[in-house]
Each structure stands twice: as structure tokens, then as C-alpha cells.
Design a protein around this nucleic acid. Structure first.
Lengths: 167, 167
DNA sequence: AAATGACAAAAAAACGAAAAATTGTCTATG
DNA sequence: CATAGACAATTTTTCGTTTTTTTGTCATTT
């Protein structure tokens, strides 16, 4: 039920799509398609000699991704800035919209990349595994038991042994 | 190297901490401790007859969590609003700060809860597994092959067979 | 069919001023 | 020692206005 069929010469990755097809498949409006192409957000990877768009499959993914993020409440400007920032952070990416897993939260776009989560604009990364606090305080407790507590107790960058995912 | 030691009657969960200890352990300032207590953000679970604070271990976790979020750039007001919203969304929680995994991204606080991720203030949830698009478009391709495409192609709520995590 | 251009409506961002919240410091009290 | 209160400095929010961006619609062109 789940095989990626590609019988005959009908290779999906080699197929190109017209604007009309891209519109139908992704749900992006004609106006948006044109505008996004104009501002360079999503440029069709191929063109006819006459300048007509030919969207590749990764292009469609980018289009659909953009649409979903927008539907999720992300403004186009934030999206553009995120992509600019992302391509700076991860220069090897050609089209972050089709190559990354993104998560929109109304205000912010996060990217899941190689196991980590970070914010697209700042690159800031933050996770709070509560389990770790428990260990820290337990540690602390032991220390206190030995010498009646004084001094720095939670040195911010904490060398985590006994690693635990928490999420 | 990683056993949660609790020799004798020294059970961590039963231990209570004075304000001074809470300050030392969590790094929260005295002023903050007092203010947060006053506004009800983090109230010590226990008190002496004379009204002196006795913070339990979960209290310490809440304190440390708040501090870390603040250090990560979240304002106290956003933190307060997030917690208000969270306890509305998840009424069974007594203290979200100690019972949830939170992730701060400068602007927004996300919560990881039962496998899902959402934004604390709006409850909005969004994940974009790219792998799914691929399947959708493949599907679309097949349809097009049979009947030259017309009509709705990406009915938004898509019944995902062949589920794939993507993240 | 598809791209382009022009115009207007709608949505979002930028900006600045005023109000509110948070925190530090210091003093007093129990 | 810990709490409470007062005061001021700093940080955040809020709000209203202006500017910019984005999108729809329609007409024109290739």
C-alpha cells in the first residue's frame, strides 16, 4: 500500500509541472505564485525558452510548505526572513522549504535538523529537559550533605553525564 | 555514576528548602523569589507557622525552569501568560513549570506534551513532515495519470496511510 | 495559457510615546 | 535570617499612526 511507484519512464523527480498544475496541486494562488517567483522566494527550477515556468517536484514541495506555513499563521515576511537566515546558517541548502522539517507556531518558525531544534531567525537553541534538573538538584543535595552549602551550585554550562532525552 | 542516591531518610521528594537554599540552588535572586511568590507565579508549597517559605523539590524545578526561560530571553509577562494559558489547556496540571518540557525560542514558549508540540499561548499546533508532501504529490501524480486532472487535489485534512515521522 | 502591469483592498511591520511590570537596593520589622 | 515596604532604574507592553508588503482583480500582451 505504500510503495513509491514509478513505472515506466514516469519518474516523479524528472517530471516538471506547469503553473496551472502547480496551482492545482499546491493550492497556492496564481497571484502568489507570480509574486513569490518575482521576489525570489520560490523560483521555478526550469523555464521554457519563452519564459514560462516549469516547476520541479522539489519546487512543489517548497510551494506547499510555504502555503502551509502561511496557513498556519506565519506571515510571508517572516517566512522570507527565516529562509534568508536559514541559508546563512546552513549554506549547503539550496531550498530550505523543501529540504528541512519546519514547525510554525504562529510567531516563530523552528527547524528540525539533525536531531536538534532551533529557531530559524536567531539560530537560538533551547530545550529544557526537566529530568536534568532533578539530577542537578540531587547532585546538589549530595554536596550539601558533605559540606554545608556555599558557593556556585548550578554552573550554567552543565556537563551532562547520564544523558536523558526528556523529549 | 548515575544512580539517584537517597540513603537513609534523606528522601529528596520529602525535603524542603529555605529561601536561601532555593536562591543558591536555582540562581534566582531574592527579589525575584519574593516577587514571584507575591504574584503567585511560584508559591512555596509549604510554609512555617511564621510565614517563612519552604520550597519543595518540585518548587525548585519550577524556579529553575522559570530562570532558564528568562535567561533564554522570555519575559516574565510572557511566561506568566503562557502558564495561565497552559493551565487552561491542561487543567490537570498544578505547576506547568515543573511538570512539562518547555522550549523557549526568544519569543515563544513551546510545550512538548504527549508527543505533540504546541505553542503555549495559542495552543496552535503545527508540524510539517516533508515526507508526507512527497506522498501526496505522488498520489496526485497517479490521479493525473488516470484522468487528466481537475478538481480539488489536496483536501487539507489528509488521511495519512504509510505514516512516517519525518522528525 | 501564461505572463505582465496597474490599481486598490487587506495584512503586516515599523515606529514612537505612554503605561505597566519587573528588578535592584536600601531600610525596617518580626 | 527572612520578610515586607518604599523608591528608583530598567525592561516590557500597549496603543495609535504611518509605511510597507502582500494579495485579488482586471486588462493587456506574448
Amino acid at each position: 500500500m505504500c510503495y513509491h511507484s514509478q513505472k515506466g519512464g514516469n519518474n516523479l523527480m524528472a517530471t516538471v509541472f506547469t503553473s496551472r498544475q502547480a496551482i492545482q496541486i499546491t493550492g497556492v494562488s496564481q497571484r502568489q505564485l507570480a509574486y513569490w517567483r518575482k521576489i525570489g522566494l520560490i523560483i521555478p527550477s526550469q523555464q521554457t525558452p519563452g519564459g514560462h515556468a516549469r516547476y520541479t517536484f522539489p519546487d512543489l514541495i517548497a510551494l506547499k510548505t510555504a502555503k502551509r506555513l502561511i496557513d498556519a499563521g506565519v506571515s510571508l515576511q517572516k517566512l522570507r526572513k527565516s529562509i534568508t537566515a536559514l541559508t546563512r546558517t546552513l549554506p549547503h541548502l539550496r531550498q530550505p522549504l523543501s529540504e528541512l522539517s519546519l514547525l510554525a507556531t504562529g510567531d516563530v518558525i523552528l527547524v528540525f535538523h539533525e536531531g536538534a531544534v532551533f529557531e530559524t531567525l536567531t539560530g537560538q537553541e533551547w530545550i529544557l529537559p526537566i529530568a536534568q534538573f532533578q539530577r542537578e538538584v540531587t547532585q546538589q543535595q549530595k554536596q550539601q550533605g558533605l559540606a554545608s552549602g556555599q558557593g556556585e551550585l548550578f554552573p550554567e554550562a552543565n556537563p551532562a553525564q547520564c544523558h536523558e532525552q526528556g523529549i
